[in-house]
């Protein structure tokens, strides 16, 4: 009897934890939707910011975030592919490959703020570019490198060895096997990883606040140096600090809802593949 009661108590306690976690999601999403929904309109997405956020829309903020995120993709995709191939193919099973994996894990843990700081020191100050979308893209691209890379490495490791063996049996060289077998078979991993990375990059404020983005006064960048962009996260960050004007408050929740929708849709697209990988890795 005592054992049964313990069992029920433990189930209830852990179940409550799960309810709290899932309830948090509901509460958060509800809080944002409820407050942000009234702000959403056609004008909100097509107009530029006016009256320090109290009027107008977030067109250039969305555009800026798009520019930053796509630049980050262009930076991270080739680097991640190269690192993944080196780690999972050329250095497979060697200590150096494991070290590379460890390096990626540590890189993944580095606070995003520090990426912003280094971007500021090197590009904004030492190279004298000033704030620029390109720095933001570079910094974000570097930041999401581990995410993209790990997804690709997992996919390469899960590739049935018979594909590779069949290709090797035909006399293909390793570089040919990579191009004709491994990369085509694992591009799903690159896409999944990139989507997750982009979701992360789109929501980050710390790496771009010193390097790439301003609150107002920027539209479409026309060059590299001294050409910052607006961005959604920084917009929210600044407005949330002096959110006493009700008009501003509505707008900032609208922006938060937009950002949330953007990030969630990116990670939802990547979700099925990601869950499948995880379940298979633990052979459930």
């Amino acid at each position: 009897m005592r054992r049964r009661l313990t069992d029920i108590a433990f189930r209830t306690a852990t179940g409550l934890c799960a309810c709290v976690a899932c309830g948090l999601l509901v509460v958060i999403v509800w809080a944002i939707c409820q407050r942000g929904w009234p702000a959403l309109s056609w004008r909100f997405f097509t107009e530029q910011i006016r009256l320090v956020g109290a009027d107008g829309g977030i067109f250039y903020n969305v555009l800026g975030t798009g520019i930053l995120v796509l630049t980050a993709l262009a930076v991270s995709a080739p680097l991640a592919t190269a690192i993944a191939l080196v780690q999972a193919v050329y250095l497979r099973g060697r200590p150096l490959g494991a070290m590379l994996g460890l390096f990626l894990q540590v890189l993944n843990g580095v606070p995003s703020l520090l990426f912003g700081l280094i971007g500021m020191i090197v590009f904004v100050q030492a190279l004298g570019w000033g704030k620029s979308w390109l720095i933001g893209g570079l910094v974000l691209g570097f930041m999401i490198l581990p995410t993209v890379c790990v997804a690709l490495v997992e996919r390469i490791a899960a590739l049935p060895s018979r594909y590779v063996e069949a290709a090797a049996g035909l006399g293909l060289r390793r570089s040919q096997i990579i191009r004709s077998v491994i990369l085509p078979q694992t591009k799903g991993g690159l896409i999944t990883g990139s989507l997750l990375g982009l979701a992360r990059a789109a929501g980050e404020t710390a790496p771009i606040m010193f390097t790439a983005t301003v609150f107002a006064g920027a539209t479409v960048p026309r060059g590299v140096s001294e050409s910052p962009v607006l961005s959604l996260p920084y917009h929210i960050f600044i407005l949330s600090q002096d959110s006493f004007d009700p008009a501003v408050v509505t707008k900032v929740w609208g922006a938060a809802l937009t950002l949330l929708a953007l990030v969630c849709s990116l990670s939802l697209i990547a979700l099925p593949a990601r869950l499948k990988n995880h379940e298979e890795a633990n052979n459930v």
Binding site: A21, C22, L24, L25, I28, A31, I32, A199, R200, A202, G203, E204, T205, A206, P233, I236, F237, S240, Q241, S243, V249, V252, W253, A256, L259, L260, V263, C264, L266, S267, L268, L271, R274, L275
Partner: peptide, 20 residues
């Protein structure tokens, strides 16, 4: 899935919720 979505919420949005 719920937890992954929770993980995806940007920190600035958490910050906004925290402030308000």
């Amino acid at each position: 899935v719920a937890i992954e979505l929770l993980a995806g919420i940007p920190s600035v949005v958490y910050g906004l919720l925290g402030i308000v």
